Computed example of a mutant assay.
Amino acid sequence: MRVRGERECRECGRHWSYFETGSVECPTCGSLHSVGTGDREAHTDAPVDLDLREHRQRFGETTSVLPTDGVTDLKRDLRAYVHKRGFVHAGELTELDATYLAARELLEAVDVYDRLRQPTADDQAYLLDLLAGADGGDRPRTAEVPTTMRSARGMATALAVETYREALATYLAESTADTDASRRTSAFGHTDASGHTDASGHTDAPNGFPQRREEPSTVSASQSREGESLQHVQLDRLRERLRDRTNQILALQGDVDPSVADELVRATRAIYAAVTTGDEDALDRANAHLDDAAPIS
């Protein structure tokens, strides 16, 4: 959704960033009477922290069976975190980060562990290692994932990547709309701080004399549009491949080699690099990672 990121309190006049607080309540006087200012920006994220210290204390003495109350509370907090998180912040695309992935994996791992009839020491160590580092974005290494827990990493990764893919679609749609609007504005004149440009492309400069706005050459503008179009086609294909890979892993209930899940994450981050930096090599890297993300059960 698009929101105005800056707000002004009608009671005390305080200005604050909605992007930082996620609330229309004035941080100074607590009034709910505020007005949005500035331009609207695409925004799907919310300010939320993941704090697992209380849960670590509760599960520290776990031997085999997890305490029911503890499981319920832990899953509640993990769900609240992942549901509030998004990957478009104040109009900018953000990366699929390690803390989000770890929270997703811990949520899946608790379910898997709870269903095991006879959890092993490795299963327990894996779960507690996740709990120990998830809020800092740390997860057990790929080689340390027990066979019984493969599905937790696979499902968590597929669900995280699918959520990211949806955010990417939102971001690209908003970016395309902004670009189209900018081009329409350019076609009918341009306004800046120095004066007004009419439909003919003349600018009324501060001294009152019209100045012709310099236009880029038709050839370079055309080439630029062709380049943008080609990149959009490549991104669309990558998004389709990303969707196919996630669907394949979900169909297998996440039971894939953990290295496959890792390649899916690498592909997603390469796409992020391509979108945010224009790095064409990143598109090739994303395709290569998706090739290696083919699930083999």
Rank of each mutant, 00 (worst) to 15 (best):
R4C: 14
R7V: 12
E8V: 12
C12N: 03
S17W: 09
S17I: 02
E20P: 06
G22P: 02
E25R: 12
T28D: 13
T28R: 06
C29F: 13
L32N: 04
L32G: 07
S34M: 05
V35M: 09
V35P: 06
G38K: 08
R40S: 13
R40H: 13
E41G: 00
H43Q: 04
H43T: 07
D45G: 02
D51G: 03
L52T: 03
L52K: 01
R53W: 08
E54S: 15
R58H: 14
F59D: 00
T62M: 15
V65M: 04
G70N: 06
D73I: 00
R76H: 10
L78M: 05
A80N: 15
Y81T: 10
Y81E: 06
V82E: 09
V82L: 12
H83A: 12
F87Y: 08
V88G: 02
T94G: 01
E95K: 02
A98T: 14
R104D: 06
A109R: 09
A109K: 10
V110M: 13
V110T: 14
V112G: 01
D114N: 13
P119T: 04
T120C: 07
D122G: 05
D123Y: 09
Y126V: 00
L128H: 10
L130K: 02
L130E: 06
L130W: 08
G133C: 09
T142M: 11
E144C: 02
V145Y: 08
P146M: 00
P146T: 00
P146G: 02
M149P: 15
M149T: 12
A152F: 08
R153W: 09
G154A: 07
G154L: 06
M155W: 04
A156F: 08
T163M: 05
Y164F: 10
Y164M: 00
R165G: 01
T170C: 02
Y171S: 05
L172C: 08
A173H: 10
E174W: 09
S175F: 03
T176A: 08
T176L: 10
A177P: 13
A177F: 13
T179D: 11
S182P: 00
R183P: 06
S186D: 14
G189Q: 05
G189D: 06
H190C: 02
D192I: 03
S194Q: 08
T197W: 04
A199M: 01
A199Y: 02
G201M: 07
D204G: 05
P206S: 07
G208V: 13
R212K: 10
E215W: 13
P216Q: 09
S217P: 15
V219S: 07
V219P: 02
S220N: 05
S224D: 15
R225T: 14
G227E: 15
H232N: 07
H232D: 14
V233M: 11
L238N: 04
E240T: 08
R241H: 11
L242P: 01
R245Q: 10
R245C: 03
R245H: 06
T246I: 01
Q248T: 01
I249V: 15
L252P: 01
Q253S: 09
D255E: 13
V260Q: 12
A261E: 04
A267V: 02
T268W: 00
I271V: 14
A274Y: 02
G278F: 02
D279K: 01
E280P: 00
D284Y: 09
N287L: 05
H289Q: 08
H289Y: 11
L290R: 05
D291T: 03
D292H: 15
A293M: 06
A294E: 15
I296Y: 07
S297Y: 12
S297L: 14
